[in-house]
Each structure stands twice: as C-alpha cells, then as structure tokens.
Design a protein around this nucleic acid. Structure first.
Length: 534
RNA sequence: GCGCUCGUAGCUCAAUUGGAUAGAGCAUCUGAUUACGGAUCAGAAGGUUGGGGGUUCAAGUCCCUCCGAGCGCGCCA
C-alpha cells in the first residue's frame, strides 16, 4: 500500500537526516485540501520541539533525503505552512488502487483481520417482552447490528444478543392485562393499556397461560420487526433461565468470596464504591427479593464466560447505570474495560414539523413497524445510522417517506442501479467487463475518474476507523461521497458511445465495476440493500 | 443541587480524535442534456463553531468558567 511506502520512506529519511531521538510514530494523512497534495505528514512539526530545531528547517532536511530517490508513484514533495511535508502522486497510483479493488473483489474489499481471535458479544435491543418494539428502539437496533457487521468485517467473532427481562412485576402485570383483554375487560389501571393487547388476546387460544403465551407472542413480535430491517440476533437470553439455573446464586457467592458483597440493614449490598461508584448498591432488598442489578450481574458473568469482550448498546435513559454495571463486572473479577457500554442518544421524530411520541405507557406510541411501513427498511437503516450516536437525532418521517432529495439513501442506491444499467447497456454494445483479464487503465486521466478512485482508496481505512470507534455513520458518509463522485463522473464521462474508443470504454467499465464493489461493500456494512434497478 | 451526553450555515448533520482556508445535503438564487436512467451535474450565497478565559507551532476538538438543551440521580425495572 502507498501509505506504508510513504511512511517507510519518511522513516528512512528521518534516520538519514540524523534526527535524534527519532519519533515514535509517523503520521500520514489525507490533506483536507487538494492543493496540499495527495498525502501529507506533520512529522516535522511533531518532532521539531524535542529535537530543538525549527520545524521548516527540519522538514527541509527530511525532504532533501527523500529527494535522493523518490518513492514509487511520487511526483513531487513540497513543504508547506508551518512545516507540513506534502506528497503529490502520479496517476499511476490511482490506477494501481483501481486494479487492486477489482483484484480484491466484493467479498474482501475493505475487510481487515485485526480482530481475529477476539470474540465480542454485542448486546442490543433488549426490550421488555410485553409490548411491540416502539420507534425509540429503532436507532439502537440498527446501530447495534451495524457495529456487529463492522466487527465481523474486521475479523472479530461476533455474537448478536438480546436480553429478555422475563420475570418480575412487569411480567405479572402484562399477563393480568392480557387476561383482562381476553375476558373483554379493560386492563388494570397500572397495567398495559395499548390496543395491541386486544389483538393478541384475540389470537390467544382459550386454554393458554397468558404469561407464557403472551411472552412468546411479544418475543416473536420483536423478532419479526427486527427481521424487516435485517437485524437477526444469535441469542435471545432469558433472565428466568439465570435464576432457574442457579447462576444468580453462584454470582452472589462469587461476590461474597471476593469480599465485594456485604450485609447491612437487612439487605445485601455490592461494594461498587470500590470501583468509583457514588454509593454502594443494593443487591438483595430487605424483603428478600433481588433488585434488577443482581440478575444483571449474573447475566454479565454468563456473557464473559462466552466472549472476550462485551459491548452493550443502551438508550440515553440508562446512562446512570453505566458506572455501577462496570463496577459490578470489576467486582466479579473481570476487567471493567472489557465491558464497553455505548449510549445512543434519543431520536426526536417529527411528521411535517410536528413532534410525534415514540413511546408511552398508554399506548399512544409510534411503533417500530409503523416507522418501517412509512419510510421503508432501507431509509430507516440509512437514516438512523447517518449520524453519530453521541448527539440527539431529529428525523422527519414525512420528508423520508418521499422518494426525494431529502432522502440520501436513494442517492446512493441510484448510483448502484445506474451502474447496473450501464453494464446492461455495455453488454448490448458488446462490452462485458472481465475481472480475470488485465485492463489497460492508462486512459483514465480525467479528474472525475480520479475522484472516484481516490474515494475508493479511502474505504479500507474508513472501515477500520468505523469499527474501532463503533461509528457506522462514517460508512454512511463515505457512501454519500462515493455516490457523489460517481454521479459526477457519470455526468461528464460517457462509458459507451460514438466518440468513445473501445480502450476507454473498457477502462471505464473497470472503474464502474470497482465503484459497484465499493457501493455494495459499504451498503452491506450498514445493512441497506443495493438494488440493480429502481 | 449533583452527574452523564451535547451546543457547528436558516434546517438536518460532518470534520481523518490536536492539523493547514471548518465541509456536505436540504431550502434559496443562477445555470447545464439532440448519447449511456434528470432520483443527475455545475455555480452563487450562507459561519466570531453558544459567550469568555487558558494550554501550544497549531483548538470546533484539550482545561477552567458562565449560558442553554436532553437525559438520569430509588431497598423501581
């Protein structure tokens, strides 16, 4: 890769220039502005101080060494600003990139292996199994799944998991509410009021246990909804199974053995303050019941027995529990850093500028299914993944339901469909791209063509960063850039036609094939379909 | 009151984790096609990155302090 070539060259030049001490690492990045070349390094700036030299002077020395024998593809090296070293590359670089994309192929493009040997459990959704998923679950669901996709693409072994809170007061209330509906009565005042229970009661056979039947019905509802947006969990983990299997008791015994649990005021407490929590937390109440925390601890203990690292995707309203959950993990003897808790900020849903409620006890909520019905699975995934989970997201359903400019997913999918259309046209004209034969890429000299390849060249790096930072929105942004570069190319550069030589047609077919690979690979990572026609 | 997450163009959001002149889309205005799908392309305009101070070669990014927003703060789950 060109990146390694340049870093190696810089390293050698720094050594030859007699820099001492030598920098621990050499940064190489893509400048924000094209004027600053294709690649840039701030190594002179970063090193100057410790060496006691002026940054530009140091850059001069390094560049003088580099000039002795220019690295492959390098056309010019310049010093700019306070001491940046900028590399300007020949077109041959991009031709190599393009050939490499095609040789790599769709299945492997942008993939890495640095996660090999690490098993990560990604827990997400984990909604209470007593009502349909609501719109507020959507963001976390597609986010968790795309993080899992990114982890898989970087070599990790991944388990997608959802936790079921299937015991306790809420489940009894749920069963009572369902039973009441079955009798044609209103649910208890503190029960579940939503109309969905009327439908479920209708479906329920007369001789069924409302709790067991309702529980299974709710889980099935979650699974069916998630499947519509390409989310399929490997494990649906039952809280009841932990209690029944004795793992809660074992976990408590383990905490006691480690002197991380103690009795006080007729209750049993976790020493979470040892791990930075504000106060110790109750595990067993004075009435003898568990708090929610105790089974959660047993659950995380179980997950750690099955995976190396845990990722929990939580909604913003749960951020207050992060410290105590990590403390609990530490108390069990695991490294708290091996439990990564990601909080997704809320989504504000609007319809024509008016806010709609996403959840509510009375059942006046917008369900996840309704969102999918309204805007489609692809738009739902693309939209909810399009920005960082750190900030609150504002979404207008009316704008997204229209196949319009407000909806970037079509812009990207349209690029993919256009490529297939082009290939069909090319085939009619007798041109069929064949990846197994070498194509002469030297006719690709237009800036529009280079922009497409330059964007493709960034993909592998973007995938790595997106995976490490758990940031699928970076893939979404890259897809928009690639689509934009392609549409620009498409507009200015004809692939087939009277004035186009067969050599140029073949080279451009290679370009659009590589673009197709890129679009497909990126869309796969965010779980959005890549249609061949729209 | 305390804590967490934030505050970037009229709107919705980026910004390679400290890099060079803060970028896209939408909306607004102006243009482009006798050929491959106009769900397209090009251009213009739009900013004191909430305010103030600090750190350094360099700050939207780090620190302090105000202002504002969302969400939490139970022997509920």
């Amino acid at each position: 890769m060109i990146r390694d070539t340049l870093i190696d060259a810089l390293g050698s030049a720094i050594e030859a220039a007699g820099v001492d001490p030598r920098p621990a690492s050499i940064a190489l990045e893509r400048p924000a502005h094209r004027d600053h070349g294709d690649w840039s390094s701030n190594v002179a700036l970063a090193t100057a101080k410790t060496v006691g030299k002026n940054p530009r002077e140091l850059a001069q020395q390094v560049v003088a060494e580099l000039q002795r024998e220019l690295p492959l593809h390098v056309e010019a090296i310049e010093i700019a600003g306070p001491g940046f070293i900028n590399f300007r590359l020949a077109h041959t670089w991009l031709h190599d990139v393009l050939a490499d994309v095609i040789a790599t192929g769709q299945g492997a493009f942008g993939r890495h292996s640095f996660g090999s040997g690490t098993h990560i459990n990604v827990e997400f959704v984990s909604a209470n199994p007593n009502k349909p998923l609501h719109a507020g679950h959507a963001r976390g669901a597609v986010y968790g799944d795309s993080v899992a996709r990114l982890l898989e693409a970087t070599g990790h072994q991944v388990t997608r998991e959802s936790y079921l809170n299937d015991r306790g007061v809420q489940m009894s209330l749920f069963a009572d509410s369902l039973a009441a509906r079955k009798r044609g009565e209103a649910p208890p005042d503190d029960g579940y009021q939503g109309d969905y229970l009327i439908d479920w009661a209708d479906e329920m056979p007369d001789d069924s246990d409302p709790l067991e039947w309702g529980y299974e019905r709710a889980v099935r509802s979650h699974q069916e909804t998630l499947a519509r947006v390409n989310v399929n969990h490997d494990v649906w983990f039952s809280e009841r199974s932990l209690v029944a299997g004795g793992q809660v008791a074992e976990s408590l015994a383990q905490l006691r053995a480690r002197e991380m649990a103690f009795d006080n005021d007729d209750a049993t407490w976790l020493k979470s303050t040892v791990f930075g929590d504000d106060k110790d937390r109750v595990l067993i109440k004075s009435d003898g019941d568990f708090t929610y925390l105790m089974p959660d601890i047993a659950y995380h203990r179980d997950k750690f027995a099955r995976a190396d690292k845990l990722i929990n995707v939580w909604g913003a309203d749960h951020h207050g529990y992060i410290v105590r959950m990590k403390a609990a993990v530490g108390a069990l003897g695991n490294d708290p850093d091996d439990l990564e808790i990601i909080v997704t900020q809320l989504v504000e849903l609007n319809r024509d500028g008016v806010e709609v409620r996403m959840s509510g006890r009375l059942g006046d909520m917008v369900t996840f299914d309704e969102v999918i019905d309204e805007i489609g699975a692809d738009a739902a995934r693309f939209t909810f993944l399009s920005q960082s989970m750190d900030t609150r997201q504002s979404v207008d359903l009316a704008a997204l339901s229209a196949k319009s400019m407000d909806n970037p997913v079509y812009y990207v999918q349209y690029a993919h469909a256009r490529i297939h259309s082009l290939m069909r046209k090319a085939a009619e004209a007798g041109f069929v791209f064949d990846a197994s034969t070498t194509t002469d890429l030297s006719p690709l000299v237009a800036e529009r063509e280079h922009e497409v390849i330059r964007t493709l060249s960034e993909f592998a790096e973007i995938v790595e960063i997106a995976a490490r930072e758990r940031a699928p929105h970076k893939i979404v942004n890259w897809l928009r850039e690639l689509a934009a570069a392609f549409h620009g190319f498409y507009h200015d550069c004809y692939v087939i036609g009277d004035g186009i030589s067969s050599e140029l047609t073949n080279a451009r077919l290679a370009l659009i094939e590589a673009t197709r690979i890129g679009l497909r690979a990126g869309l796969d990572l965010v779980g959005v379909s890549a249609p061949e026609a729209m």
